[in-house]
Each structure stands twice: as structure tokens, then as C-alpha cells.
Simulated scan of single mutants.
Amino acid sequence: MQDTATYTCAYCGEPNVTFPDWSGGRRQQYIEDCTVCCQPNVLYVTLEPDGETVCVFAEAG
């Protein structure tokens, strides 16, 4: 099971690491601040049933 996923900040373009919650359902949405510019990113996370694939899309919050 993949414990982390990487997304690109919607504001500054820097890569960030997030920790999806596998018990939170296959599709998740939450807000996480960029570790570089501190701007809020709305993350849309899809966890695939194989337990290995995590897709993350970020947009400006």
C-alpha cells in the first residue's frame, strides 16, 4: 500500500508530499498548505483498488 503521494502546488509549482488516508474512501478531497509558499491547495485524491496507485490533482484553494 502506497503511504505517500506527490502533487504540484497550484500556486508556486513546487512538488509536495501528501499522506492519503486509505480508510477515508476511494475518492477524497481535502485542503493542504504548500510546504514552500504556504498557500492552500484543494487536493482531489483517487485511491485505486490495487492499493498501489494514488492519483492526486491540486487546484488553488
Results as ranks from 00 to 15, higher is better:
residue 38 C to W: 09
residue 13 G to F: 02
residue 44 Y to V: 09
residue 28 Q to K: 09
residue 18 T to D: 05
residue 3 D to P: 10
residue 31 I to L: 15
residue 12 C to K: 03
residue 42 V to D: 06
residue 12 C to W: 04
residue 20 P to A: 05
residue 51 G to M: 07
residue 39 Q to E: 15
residue 46 T to C: 06
residue 50 D to Y: 04
residue 5 A to M: 04
residue 2 Q to L: 15
residue 20 P to K: 06
residue 10 A to N: 08
residue 45 V to F: 01
residue 43 L to I: 08
residue 43 L to Q: 03
residue 21 D to N: 13
residue 28 Q to Y: 06
residue 14 E to D: 04
residue 41 N to K: 08
residue 22 W to M: 11
residue 60 A to K: 12
residue 4 T to M: 02
residue 14 E to W: 01
residue 7 Y to N: 04
residue 59 E to S: 11
residue 36 V to T: 10
residue 14 E to M: 01
residue 28 Q to A: 07
residue 3 D to S: 14
residue 49 P to E: 15
residue 11 Y to A: 00
residue 37 C to M: 06
residue 2 Q to I: 14
residue 41 N to R: 09
residue 54 V to D: 02
residue 58 A to E: 00
residue 4 T to S: 02
residue 10 A to S: 14
residue 48 E to V: 09
residue 10 A to W: 06
residue 5 A to H: 06
residue 30 Y to R: 14
residue 22 W to Y: 13
residue 25 G to T: 14
residue 57 F to D: 07
residue 24 G to A: 15
residue 52 E to D: 13
residue 53 T to N: 14
residue 44 Y to C: 07
residue 29 Q to N: 13
residue 11 Y to L: 00
residue 58 A to K: 01
residue 11 Y to T: 00
residue 17 V to M: 14
residue 4 T to W: 03
residue 20 P to D: 04
residue 14 E to V: 00
residue 55 C to W: 15
residue 32 E to G: 07
residue 16 N to I: 05
residue 2 Q to E: 15
residue 11 Y to R: 00
residue 30 Y to K: 12
residue 61 G to P: 06
residue 1 M to H: 14
residue 60 A to Y: 07
residue 45 V to M: 01
residue 1 M to S: 14
residue 47 L to F: 10
residue 17 V to A: 13
residue 48 E to T: 10
residue 1 M to N: 12
residue 11 Y to K: 00
residue 36 V to W: 05
residue 28 Q to N: 07
residue 4 T to G: 00
residue 31 I to Q: 15
residue 47 L to C: 10
residue 13 G to H: 04
residue 60 A to G: 09
residue 11 Y to E: 00
residue 51 G to R: 09
residue 57 F to Q: 09
residue 27 R to E: 12
residue 31 I to R: 15
residue 55 C to F: 15
residue 36 V to S: 04
residue 29 Q to S: 14
residue 7 Y to V: 06
residue 49 P to W: 12
residue 16 N to A: 02
residue 29 Q to V: 13
residue 39 Q to G: 11
residue 10 A to H: 08
residue 45 V to Q: 02
residue 14 E to S: 01
residue 30 Y to L: 14
residue 39 Q to Y: 13
residue 42 V to T: 13
residue 60 A to D: 08
residue 18 T to M: 11
residue 34 C to N: 04
residue 22 W to S: 11
residue 31 I to K: 15
residue 5 A to W: 05
residue 27 R to W: 08
residue 6 T to N: 12
residue 36 V to M: 03
residue 34 C to D: 03
residue 13 G to I: 03
residue 20 P to F: 04
residue 49 P to V: 13
residue 2 Q to K: 15
residue 6 T to Y: 10
residue 59 E to C: 10
residue 50 D to S: 02
